[in-house]
Every structure is written in C-alpha cells, then in structure tokens.
Design a binder for these strands. Structure first.
Length: 835
RNA sequence: GCCGAGAUGUUGGAAUAGGUAGACAAGAGGGACUUAAAAUCCCUUGGCUGCUAACAGCCGUGCGGGUUCGAUUCCCGCUCUCGGUACCA
C-alpha cells in the first residue's frame, strides 16, 4: 500500500510556500488578523512538548488566511536571561554565542514543521537593534514619572544572585530555583505599575475572550481592597499612628496595635523607650530580618515584642499597647494594623500567645460566643455588642456608619489599598539590557543620551557573581562622563528584568526594522492589538500583566491608540509524558528526562503526523500525554487518506472538478457522501474557529471512513458518481489544510490543482445538502428508549403520534397500559407517558 | 485554609437552550492476507442476566437527595482529583 511520503512532500511544499511568499505580511492590510504565539527562550533544542503552542498558532493563522484575512504571524526570541549566563560560566562560552547558536537550532527545527511564520518580522531581544528600544522605553517611563529609584526591602535569590520582582516569588521561593528568598535593603529601579492598578482591573471587560482563570489570577494579584484608615494618637511621640483596616466595624474590639519591624516609625519609637526596651526591639528586628520569606509568611506562630509605648483609642480614649510584630507587612497598607483578637485569626493567635485581652464586639447569631471560651476568631458578619449606640444592630449596618463617623470626626478616612506593588526591574546580572542611566555626583541620575548603551564584552567582566554586579567589574565601561556636566560619572551597573524585554515585543513585530524609532505609531495602530494570542497559563501574572501595563503606559505617553495588547487569549495545556526519573507523568522537559526531540520525530514521522497527534489527542486547553500509540494512530489516519486518493487517482485525476451539485440530480449513494462532506465542512468551519481541534479531526476521520466505502466498480462506470467523489475528496483536503497542510496540498496538486490552497481560499458549504429530508425519530415509553422510526422532516405532531403508537416495538410496552400523554419534540423524539 | 476547574468504558475523549450516553481514536480479542512477522483490511469490545446465538431485559456519566414525561446536562448537600493562592489586616 502506498504510504504518505512525507520526506519528499513536506520539504517540497515548504519551499513552494516560501518561494511564492504565501506567508509574507502584506504592507497595507484590508482585513487584518494578528496571530501570535508567546515567543520562546532559546535554551537548547526543541522537543515535541514545545510544539503544541506553535501548532495551535499555525492552525489559526492558516485558517484565517484561508478566510481571506491579511495575516501578521511573526516569531522571535526572548533571548536575554540567566541560562545563557550560567552556560557561559559553566562552559566558558560567550553568552551571545550560546544564545545565537540556540536560535539557529530553533529556527532550523521550526522550519521542519512548515510553520507559517514571516521570518522577515523576527525580533531577538538580545540584539542591539531591539534592546536599544527596550532602553528607550525605560527612558520614556522615566521622563513620564513611571520609573523611579527607591531604597526598599527587596527579594533576593541567592541562586540567581540577584533581586526579584514580587511576581517572581512564589510562595516565598524563587520561581526559577525554588530556593528560599531573603530580604535585602537596596536602592533599585521600580516601574510604577501600581499607577495603573485600577485600569488593569477595569479594562478586563475588554478581555472577554481571556480564560476566566487568568483574569481572576490577575484580579487577585492586584488585590484591590476597600477599607478605612484610622489614626491612633501616640502622646510621647506626639504623632498619630495610622492603621488600615477593612473591618472598621470591629473598632471597639481593638485591644492592641501592631507595627511591622521594618516600618520607619519604629526607629522613632526606639528613641523614646528605655535602653533595655530599645535593645529588645533591635534584637527582634535582627531576628525578623534573618528569616526567609517562607518563615515570615507561613501562617504558623506569630512573634512580637511590646514596644514600650501605648496609643490612645480614638473612640474610647483608653490606652492600647503598641506591639511590634513581623506578621505585619511593612509594604502593605500603612505597615500598622489594629489588633482585634476576637474577629481576626492572626490577631487572635497573637493575643493568645502574648496573653492580650480579647473583646467580643460582634456576636455570632448561631452561637453564643464569649471572649473567654472562643477558640477561634469570629470573622463573619453578625450582631454588634459592646459597641456604644449600636448594640443589637447588624455589623453590615455598623460598618457603613462607623466609616462615615470616622471621616466626619476627622480621625481617619476611607481608603483603597492594593496588594500589587511597583515592579522592581533591576537585576544584578550580565546578560540583559543595561539600564540606560548615568549616576553623577553633581547632577544626580540622568539619562544616557546615546542609545543603545551596549553591554560590555563578557571578556571584560567578571561573570561569576562575587558581591558585585558583573557590569561593575568592567572599569572602562562603568566609568563614564556625565552627559549634563561633563564630569566623571558612573553608569547604572544593573540590567533590566528580562520580562521588560518581553513586555513589548508584540509591538515591535509590527515595524521590526525601524531604525529611526521604536515603531511607527500608524503601523502599530494598524496591526494591533493582537487578535489572537496563544501561550501558557503560567504567565498569568508575569508576562501578561507586565505587557498590559507597558501597553497602558505607552498609550498614556501617546505612542499607541489602544489600551489592551491582546484581545483574545488562548492558554494551551501542557504536554506530559512518563518520566523515568520521577516515575510519573510530568510536563515534558529535559530535566525530567522525558523529551522527544522535534528533529528526530520529524525524521521518523513527518510534521503532519505530529500536528494531527497534537490536535487530536485532547482539547487544546487541556494537558495531554504524549504516547507512541497516539502518534501511530495519527500516522495511520494520514496513510488512509493518502491511500484513498492515490488508489483512485487514475480515475479522479482526469475527472472534471465541479464545485457544486444540484441535490435533485444526485442518486441516493452520491447524495449520502455529498451530504456527509458538506456536514463535515460545516462542522470543521465551526470547530476550527472555536479551538475545537480534536472534534474537527474526529469529523475528518468520520468522513474518511465514509469515503473509504467508495465503490470502485461504480466509480469506474458512473461519471456522476465519479464527479461527486472527486468533489468530496477535494473539499475534504481543502478544509484539512490548516491541520495537515503538506499532505493536503500534495494530494490536491495530484488531483490536478495548480498553485496552493492558500491562493484559492476556504470553500463554503452547501447549506441545503447538510440537512436531511427524513430524520430518525426516537420513541420512548415512560422515558425509556423503545424504538425509532424514519419520518419526513417536519412531520406534523398528529402523524408522528399515530406512527409512534402503532409502532410494533412500542406496542409491546404499551399492552396493559393506558396512555396518559404524549410529548413530541419536533424532529427529535416522542415520549409516550403511560400507566 | 481560601478561590477556581473538573470527575463519563480498559485508556484519551464525544454528546449539555434537558431529549438515542459512550462519536472519533487508542488498547484488547477474533478473523483475512503472508512460509512467517510487520504493515494493511474485516468483525467484536460499558457491566450484569437469560446455558449458546440472533435477540431480549435490567443497571450504568464520582456519592446522596430534588425538579421533570425525560437529567451526564438544572438545583441542594457531600467525596475525591487537579490547578491557583498563601499572615494583604
């Protein structure tokens, strides 16, 4: 049997598309469609697990192309980053050589797959012609007050030897290494993402085609919460300490106040207390600082120390002790919280440990709680008690009233707080875009006017971190002159977080060769926003949030006229395979020892087999397991198609192709296959547009199973039948192109078509042919299936009822029963209710 | 702990404006072709019962209830699995 000869066919069509420039981006799109897959970090070789993202993008691009859209479908490389630097340290190679070598390998491998990229649009973030614009964006942000320096306690990963953004710390550990993160007090660059917190929330209504889970993760990350700031007077300091709370209704339950050990006021406090107390506080500060992020944030034991000072409760006028506790975060709210043990879990634990009083102010309507006997804080709404003027009222009512009163009496105000913090982008590493700023003793921090600020050669720097940032170790690079006063000055020694490079690349694709400006605004506005973005959900609060922020910032600055970069987002599931190292299913990755390299795979099976395998295995948003059986099944299907066409090619090739048949002229056998074909075209048109690739492939399989029943003798003798079979075969292949483009193009060409499908477009389906004249009506008795009958479409209810009752099969179940009623669902089913 | 998503044959999965559960595959079993194997093609394949068969009946979409002529689909209450998150006051 003839087998699909992918070794000849696939390179042939890849070169046809290339020569004809089928996937080149049009200059002036009439009906634009921008498809984008998240670009990769080139870290070695591609394996089939990487493929899913690209295959999905390719199906979308080809499908839209066939529908007449002008497509922008680019690819590039997120090429700055730690692995290159680590490889350089370990193997003594240049990070650039290592990276560019990997990029070559990636591109070569991608080319085996026939992906429809326009490589003229490529961007590589580590190239000067790209990172000079990353630096340009940084300076734009600086000019607009969106980039600033500040000294702060920041996350430090000892493995990375650099600071990390909050988004890069997961559960107290580094997102890359899984090692505990500690805090360092450093002066660093921050980007003001918090300024857009509300926009980032509000504009989510533009993102109706984003997965709910991704949007929700962003909402949680931004963490907007409405509350009240309340001031507590401190007599010795002669200052008011401000706390933030979302539960002002518990104000009469305050029995202490807690301040974070890093809160600046603690330094003032130390000046006022006894030397002994001061020593205690300092010891506690050292203790807290030494803790890792996990120890600090785990919900276990709370520690603290009495500050030596007391505050005045603004409503009761009574004294409440001020404690220092590291369960209070210095970076959230005011860094000071009011302690209400009865109604907050953390305060409860703290009060129990240090034997602080508990005052119940909200009673649980279901239980009769007392401060002495309660074992947990009661955090729900309830009935106010111990609250002058409001006892017996609901806490929902009081929370509104007390907020009003606090504002009116001037000891506090309603406030909104966010969990989101500004984005720390300084990195103490080499392989990144240098921060294009100069530090001058006289003029302060000034912009370097000559971009790009090139990375020094790795030969001149000390790559291995030794307490200094690598760029600092190149004396001739770090020392420069101040562009303002001409005096001696130093460059900024840090590079930017690589997420900064990837937060705007989708813009650069629209005008990637522009050497005069970051991009032409008209061109960017023409192609963007991205119509379909495809990638992994793991970027929910990293790349996707940063990109949204940069888009909003550039919009405010006036470079672009849109506020959201990605209108539709599809997040694909991962590819798993059994890992001999861990003994279970794992995401395909080199470290787990469960990879199938793309090069080897394509050599053995061809690109189209891989595509079908990936698309058929499971719905694309779900994880799926890579199996040999799955690959073999996909390959078998392609061979069946190949065999069907080539076996009948002698007859079909010379048969005239007719694009449409009149239903009346078709005999039942011809009509049956014609109908199935058009039903399939319809289903596939819907499914592919809706990311239901697995059911689309199933539909193709069904149609192929029908085509395989073609009567060879009839095909030889009957011209009409021959024409119909040719028509159906051609339609099958045309709509199969997005999924398996090589085999489809080849067989269409063998069937006598010139050029490529992408020059001809997507076929419409014959609407009337997709509907049947007769339908199978299901008959139930008391809800149980008892038979079925063939009836003309849209038969009257009366006819259907009579036919059902008189049906032989059904009769058996009606003997001895009397019919109560008959339910008829037109063209679907009849249910006879009998007793 | 909290917040999401999910649970369907041996396996991946299909079918939800409520209407034939298991499409399409994979695996397994049987057969054809072959000296043989692979490949390919054909048949069977949710469970139980009726000795066998065509056939017929009953049960069956995580568990327990409910609404309905009819529930994988809707409602209530559980269990488990997978993600996200983790002192944010």
């Amino acid at each position: 049997m003839a087998r699909y000869s992918f070794k000849d066919v696939e390179p042939k069509w890849q070169s046809v598309w290339e020569t004809k420039g089928i996937f080149k981006t049009p200059k002036a799109p009439k009906k634009k469609f921008y498809v984008l897959e998240m670009f990769p970090y080139p870290s070695g070789d591609l394996h089939v697990g990487h493929l899913k993202n690209y295959v999905i993008g390719d199906v979308v691009a080809r499908y839209k192309k066939l529908h007449g859209y002008d497509i922008l479908h680019p690819m590039g490389f997120d090429a700055f980053g730690l692995p290159a630097e680590n490889a350089a340290i370990e193997r003594n190679v240049s990070p650039g050589d290592w990276t560019y070598g990997n990029i070559e390998t990636y591109k070569k491998t991608m080319s085996l797959l026939g992906l429809s990229y326009d490589w003229d649009r490529e961007v590589v973030t580590c190239r000067e012609d790209y990172y000079r614009w990353t630096q340009h964006i940084f300076q734009l942000l600086f000019d607009n007050g969106l980039a600033y320096r500040k000294k702060a306690f920041v996350n430090w990963c000892n493995d990375c030897q650099t600071v990390l953004a909050n988004e890069q710390v997961e559960n107290g550990v580094c997102y890359r290494h899984g090692t505990p993160v500690t805090k360092k007090n450093l002066e660093q660059w921050f980007l003001k993402i918090t300024e857009f917190a509300d926009d980032l929330l509000a504009d989510m209504d533009q993102l109706s085609n984003w997965p709910e889970s991704v949007k929700k993760q962003q909402v949680d990350w931004i963490g907007k919460s409405l509350g009240v700031e309340i001031q507590f007077q401190q007599p010795e300091l002669n200052q008011k300490l401000t706390v933030f709370t979302t539960r002002p209704d518990t104000i009469y339950g305050v029995t202490f106040v807690s301040i974070s050990p890093e809160q600046p006021l603690v330094e003032e406090i130390k000046k006022l207390v006894t030397p002994e107390q001061k020593k205690g506080i300092e010891a506690y500060q050292v203790l807290s600082k030494a803790k890792t992020e996990i120890e600090r944030t785990s919900t276990g034991e709370k520690t603290g120390i009495y500050s030596g000072l007391d505050l005045i409760h603004p409503l009761t006028g009574k004294k409440v002790p001020l404690w220092i506790g590291d369960y209070v975060l210095a970076t959230y709210g005011t860094g000071i919280v009011m302690g209400v043990p009865a109604h907050d879990e953390r305060d409860f634990a703290f009060a129990k440990k240090y034997d602080l009083p508990i005052v119940l102010v909200i009673q649980d309507p279901k239980n009769n709680l007392t401060a002495e006997t309660m074992e947990n804080a009661f955090t729900d709404e309830g009935i106010m008690i111990n609250t002058p003027g409001y006892d017996g009222k609901s806490s929902e009512e009081f929370i509104v009233a007390i907020a009003e009163r606090i504002e009116k009496e001037g000891f506090g105000k309603k406030t909104i707080n966010y969990r989101l913090r500004d984005w720390l982008i300084s990195r103490q590493r080499y392989w990144g875009a240098p921060i294009p700023m100069i530090h001058c003793a006289k003029c302060g921090v000034v912009k370097d006017p000559s971009l790009p600020v090139r990375l020094p050669s790795e030969k001149n720097v000390q790559l291995k971190p030794q307490g200094k940032t690598p760029l600092e170790t190149d004396e001739s690079w770090i020392n420069t002159t101040c562009p303002t006063c001409g005096g001696p000055a130093k460059r900024d020694a840090d590079t930017m977080d690589t997420f900064m490079c990837s937060s705007w690349y989708y813009l650069r694709y629209s005008d990637n060769k522009n050497s005069e400006s970051i991009f032409d605004s008209d061109i960017a506005n023409m192609w963007l926003p991205v119509d379909q973005y495809i990638g992994g959900a793991e970027h929910a609060v990293l790349h996707l949030l940063y990109s949204r922020f940069i888009t909003k910032a550039l919009h405010r600055i006036g470079l672009i006229n849109f506020t959201e970069p990605f209108h539709n987002l599809f997040t694909q599931g991962m590819v798993t395979m059994f890992s001999p190292k861990t003994g279970k299913l794992e995401k395909m990755s080199k470290s787990k020892g469960n990879v199938v390299p793309v090069g080897e795979f394509v050599k053995e099976w061809g690109a189209d087999t891989g595509r079908v395998m990936i698309l058929f295995a499971a719905p694309p948003e779900r994880d799926f397991e890579w199996t040999n059986e799955g690959v073999a099944g996909a390959n078998r299907f392609l061979n069946r198609i190949w065999a069907f066409v080539t076996d009948n090619l002698d007859l079909l090739e010379k048969t005239e192709f007719k694009s449409r048949f009149e239903i009346k002229e078709l005999d039942p056998v011809s009509f049956k296959i014609y109908q199935k074909t058009h039903q399939t075209v319809k289903k596939v048109t819907d499914d592919l547009g809706d990311f239901k690739f697995n059911t689309a492939v199933a539909a193709f399989m069904e149609l192929m199973n029908e085509l395989n029943k073609t009567d060879r003798a009839l095909l030889e003798s009957n011209q009409l039948y021959r024409e119909v079979i040719k028509h159906c075969t051609v339609r099958f292949l045309e709509v199969f192109t997005p999924i398996a483009p090589h085999i489809s193009e080849e067989l269409l060409s063998q069937l006598g078509f010139d050029g490529t499908v992408f020059e001809r477009g997507w076929p419409s389906f014959h609407q009337e042919a997709t509907i049947s004249d007769t339908i199978t009506l299901v008959i139930q008795v008391n809800g149980k299936l008892r038979g079925n009958i063939e009836v003309p479409r849209d038969s009257s209810e009366e006819t259907v009822k009579e036919l059902s009752i008189s049906n032989e099969q059904v009769q058996k179940f009606l003997t001895g029963l009397s019919i109560v009623k008959i339910i008829v669902i037109p063209n679907k089913l009849v249910n006879i209710v009998a007793k």
